[in-house]
Design a protein around this nucleic acid. Structure first.
Length: 936
DNA sequence: AAGACAGCAA
DNA sequence: AGATTTGCTGTCTT
């Protein structure tokens, strides 16, 4: 039964990935292939290595259809399409020595398949990462896509089209299809014809070919964006390559040795992979180039349009020839050596002696920061670093100080609480800030205003974009146009978004320069090895009943609060604590987070946890051997500098977000013990069987599976039933939990609707709430008693946890697990509790945090309402337009309609605000606040 | 120093 | 397929 299920899921996943090709799900492919080969070959030993089987099988099958027979192949060999599916390209005709060549190609889609067990695989892989985009790299067969962008990137590293074609056909088992040859030629020819150049904070579109510029100016999108009357003719010199040394590399060490400095001992001498420059021709001729100016804010549009036209804009920074911008005194600290893959990624960036803009993708814990710092040390000009949170701003600054010799005065943090004066003490320097800091367009404080002027008013040599996958978000993409920089380097671990905006990075930043192979890094010991598992927790029958009946909202709560999941979680925690692991448990749902942590007596942190408390908990988690489990909400995904954990358990997560999954896995890749013999980190996803969670889980895993991680499915934990002390062991307890879960939703909704949503605009919401109420049968039946239960519980909780000293003690003595290690009670939260009490008297069962939340909900409803209205309006407008296409007055009407709509909206929001203010609930709160303030 | 608030991301 | 809740930011107020 379990194996059947597994097969089903695998097939499902395979089907889901069918768009990107079957081979992307390795376990399926592998098992299918070996099974079929087994049946073909009776002598086959069952324990034979899969790759050997595959290789021999492939050989054997290849023999069956030698060249010339391929026309008939499909009729002759029935099993083949079954085995290889759409990935059988042998009809292209195999070369005689195909066994020695590692690549297949799909002539239609430009997909390249690499046999990673082939002796030439390593060489081929290096080549492939340069010219194509890795799609999926599991154990045996890797899949790459030849795309426009990847080819642009290849040319920008210096590969000539002929090189690409020559090398590709050398690795191919089949002759290079003509389509592919044509595709490569068409993509590479137009590359580099148009350049974007930054001079004196002005942008110019430049080309050696005046016709090209004329063509662009005639383009309806680009033409009007030209700044008038500044067409100039300039001369430029083609770049030279030699002499550039990236600090931290072997070359750099050599230079230092000559200068009398010794590289630190114990550092392995690295292979000289650096600057294997592919073009050596030094053009000494001076070329005449033509250019026209465009405004900074139009750069994005122009780049996008040029890309559409098939003339990608080349953005390169010849920083060594830049005499205008001051040179920054920065270098890596002596003895610092960067790892081979870091070097490789940087050599892609500086491949031709100039700085190319682009993206570097490295898994978490693989030293992205150091790559950024090394890039900064190579360019040696003003640097601006952008991060997602103020925490990482501080970290980036620290890392810079740690790895480089930059003077602390020259590196400034610019965040809301550290405005960093108005610049550097020197003439240039590094500024570290957040995306929102530089994109905020609303009123700014005086200091911030100054710094912003400073940032936008000058030219930067390098812009480092941390977590670059956030840039395509509507607000953040502004940064690329408002800050004038010669080169951009985007860093991320997961170049993934669940929307389709990720390809925008191609013109917002640049092509992907390098993407590391996770499995390779873990084999080399740079990141930890991880065992991934999905634990299937069956739902107790009454839970499942309710799950089937429940509306989607409650469904999720039900499968998260599955008692069997509680038990599995407890079991895993016990098991790994006994092994000496440090465990992090992730839950997106705060309610579940608290419930789990309290029930199992562990520490937890979520958004409402104060700064002070967070630090205290983290410190205990790190140093106190008695605190080895920590529960985190999605706060742990981004904004927490987590100490090293070795085991990770997910109990709930954000739908099918692959990025979240990868980011969470990244939390255990850093482990210091990774090089210990046989060390393994563990990654568990707990899913409730036969629920939506299964689907989400498979979706989330897609990225990691592509990276080569194999997820085991665990349906039974060893001695699970005999484990003593499991929570919710009796049916009565489970029933109680079920009621609690059902009622939790009920009461909240009811209260929110009754207390907070008096305003007439909320009719929709109310309707929704009513339907929801009728749906929960069990909740209705037991609602009354149940309220009492909640209230009691709440008060008990208050009594128990209000005291700071007590919680501090329980933390130090976790053996008093019975006491519940609730270390979430800071002074701040304690104050909030007062709010909770008030709300309690009003019949609001949850804390004031929830009050805030529900107000936010109201806001959100407001927004959604507006959005909906907007949508309807747009649709209406469209129809309106359609009907009155030729009516001149339609525009006027439209405008009037818009205006009235807007004023209506404004009035409504005002009304809502007034209502909110008049609401006794808020009045009471604000009175309480005032009273408290007076007391202080 | 901490909370309210608004806006945004995922 | 679509939903959706939590958390971050800066600024202003107390």
């Amino acid at each position: 039964m379990p194996s059947k299920r597994k097969a089903e899921v695998l097939i499902q996943r395979g089907a889901k990935r069918a768009k990107t090709g079957r081979s992307s799900h390795m376990p399926t492919t592998r098992t299918t292939i070996s099974r079929n080969l087994d049946s073909n070959e009776p002598n086959d030993k069952p324990d034979e290595e899969g790759d050997q089987v595959l290789e021999r099988g492939v050989e054997k099958n290849m023999d069956l259809f030698s060249l010339g027979r391929h026309q008939k192949k499909h009729t002759i060999l029935k099993p083949l399409p079954y085995i290889f599916g759409q990935n059988d390209f042998s009809y292209l005709g195999l070369k005689k020595d195909h066994q020695n060549r590692p690549l297949w190609i799909d002539p239609k889609k430009g997909r390249i398949i690499l046999e990673s067990f082939n002796p030439l695989a390593e060489q081929a892989q290096d080549f492939l990462t340069t010219i194509a985009e890795p799609l999926s790299r599991p154990n045996l067969v890797h899949e790459y896509a030849l795309t426009m962008h990847s080819l642009y990137a290849a040319v920008s590293v210096g590969l000539a089209p002929s090189d690409i074609i020559k090398t590709l056909s050398r690795f191919l088992k089949t002759p290079l299809p003509d389509e592919i040859r044509a595709f490569i030629n068409s993509c590479t020819q137009s590359y580099g014809k148009v350049k974007l150049v930054l001079k004196n904070t002005k942008y110019y579109v430049e080309s050696p070919d005046p016709n090209m510029l004329q063509m662009l100016l005639k383009n309806p999108t680009i033409g009007p964006l030209r700044v008038q009357g500044v067409e100039t003719i300039t001369t430029s010199v083609a770049p030279k390559i030699g002499g550039l040394v990236i600090p931290g590399t072997k070359n750099a060490a050599g230079v230092k040795q000559i200068n009398g400095e010794q590289p630190q001992h114990g550092q392995p001498v690295q292979e000289d992979t650096i600057l294997s420059c592919l073009t050596e021709e030094d053009d000494e001729d001076q070329e005449v180039t033509h250019s026209f100016e465009i405004a900074g804010k139009h750069v994005e549009t122009v780049q996008k349009e040029c890309l559409n036209l098939g003339y990608p804009v080349l953005e390169e920074y010849d920083f060594r020839k830049d005499g205008v911008n001051a040179t920054l005194d920065i270098d890596l600290k002596p003895g610092t050596q960067i790892r081979p893959y870091q070097e490789k990624s940087l050599s892609k960036m500086f491949g031709n002696g100039r700085a190319k803009s682009g993206l570097i993708v490295l898994p978490c814990g693989a030293g992205k920061t150091l790559v950024g710092i090394t890039a900064a040390c190579t360019i040696k000009k003003g640097v601006i670093v952008l991060c997602t949170s103020s925490m990482s701003v501080v970290q980036w600054r620290q890392e810079f100080l740690k790895w480089s010799n930059i003077s602390p005065d020259d590196i400034v943090a610019f965040t809301s609480d550290s405005k960093g004066g108005s610049g550097f003490t020197g003439i240039t320097g590094i500024i570290v800030t957040t995306y929102s800091m530089v994109t905020q367009s609303k009123a700014r404080s005086h200091g911030a205003e100054n710094v912003m002027k400073f940032i936008t008013g000058r030219e930067w040599g390098l812009m480092l974009l941390d977590e670059v996958h956030v840039v395509p978000a509507n607000i953040f993409r502004k940064v690329t146009s408002s800050i004038k920089t010669h080169s951009k380097l985007g860093l991320t671990a997961t170049l993934l978004r669940e929307d389709d905006k990720i390809s925008d990075l191609n013109f917002l930043i640049g092509p992907k320069l390098f993407e590391a192979n996770w499995m390779e890094l873990s084999k080399q010991g740079h990141i930890a090895k991880v065992q991934c598992a999905e634990v299937w927790c069956p739902m107790p029958i009454d839970f499942y009943d309710q799950y089937l009946k429940a509306p989607s909202r409650k469904k999720s709560l039900l499968y998260i609060m599955n008692p069997r999941k509680f038990q599995a979680c407890q079991y895993l925690i016990n098991y790994h604590e006994a092994r000496g692991d440090k465990i992090i448990v992730f839950s997106d749902n705060v309610y579940a987070l608290k419930a789990y942590a309290l029930k199992l007596g562990k520490a937890f942190i979520y958004g409402g946890t104060s700064q002070e408390e967070r630090l205290r908990v983290l410190e205990n988690f790190q140093h106190n051997p008695l605190v080895s489990t920590l529960f985190l909400s999605k706060i742990g995904d981004t904004s927490l500098d987590l100490p090293e954990a070795t085991c990770l358990i997910q109990i709930s997560s954000h739908y099918g977000s692959r990025r979240q999954e990868a980011q969470r896995l990244g939390r255990i890749l850093r482990a210091k013990r990774r090089n210990d013999e046989g060390f393994n980190a563990f990654f568990y996803s707990l899913v409730s069987k036969d629920t939506q969670e299964m689907y989400f889980s498979s979706k989330r895993q897609a990225f990691l599976v592509d990276q080569g991680y194999a997820f085991k499915v665990i349906t039974e934990l060893a001695h699970f039933d005999k484990t003593p002390g499991l929570v919710f062991a009796t049916a009565a307890e489970q029933r109680k939990l079920l009621q609690k879960v059902l009622a939790e939703n009920e009461t909240t909704d009811e209260d929110i609707t009754d207390d907070l949503f008096h305003s007439d605009t909320m009719d929709n919401r109310k309707k929704k709430a009513v339907t929801r109420r009728t749906a929960g049968v069990l909740g209705d039946l037991s609602g009354g008693q149940y309220m009492a239960y909640v209230e009691q519980n709440k008060r008990a909780g208050q009594k128990k946890t209000g005291n700071w000293n007590r919680t501090a003690r329980t933390l130090r003595e976790p053996s008093r697990g019975q006491d519940v290690v609730n270390i979430n009670q800071t002074k701040r939260v304690g104050q909030k509790k007062v709010g909770a009490q008030i709300s309690g008297t009003l019949g609001h069962p949850r804390g004031s945090q929830d009050m805030v939340r529900s107000r936010q909900n109201e806001k959100m409803d407001k927004r959604r309402f507006n959005e909906k209205k907007e949508k309807e309006k747009n649709e209406g407008k469209k129809k309106f337009d359609d009907c009155k296409k030729f009516d001149d007055s339609s525009k006027k009407n439209d405008e009037i309609k818009k205006k009235t709509d807007e004023s209506k909206k404004r009035n409504e929001s005002k009304k809502r605000k007034r209502n909110a203010e008049r609401n006794p609930f808020f009045k009471k709160i604000s009175r309480e606040n005032a009273r408290r303030a007076a007391k202080r």
